[in-house]
Amino acid sequence: MNLEKVIFGFFIIFACTLNFGFFVGDIDRPELHHPFELFAAVVVNLIATVIKFGDRTQLGATHLATSLVATFQLIAGSLVWAWQLYVARMPMNGEMIAVVVSLSGGALVANVVSVILLLGETLRQGR
């Protein structure tokens, strides 16, 4: 067992699961999407991105790209949320939460791709 692989896999899968946790639920019901879950997803996605820095292989580059996509989408979602509350000064409504959740849905796809890459790499090595 390789500790580096454990940490690597942990963060990639964790980023995906947190993202899924936030995403799941009716898209236009703010009470089903907690801000803390989004916060955790952003943080874990950032860590997953930094962990992938510096790998020069083709697979490593694709890994990094998927994480960057997910991180950007989640940060965009949080910015939309912050805008609605503090700049527009409105309570969270169904319309805006739908935007945030759909952005996180996009990030979820990227995170799923990342997990698929991880699984593919593990299976290919076969040990």
């Binding site: 955790a40 930094v50 962990i51 510096g54």
Partner: peptide, 27 residues
């Protein structure tokens, strides 16, 4: 770029964790 990224991986992760814990805790 790759050398810089590789060398700064640990400090960047530390910083992210520190911020995450502080912000999460404060909230």
């Amino acid at each position: 770029l790759f050398m810089a990224l590789r060398r700064l991986r640990a400090p960047l992760i530390t910083l992210i964790v520190v911020y995450a814990v502080s912000v999460g805790g404060l909230a």
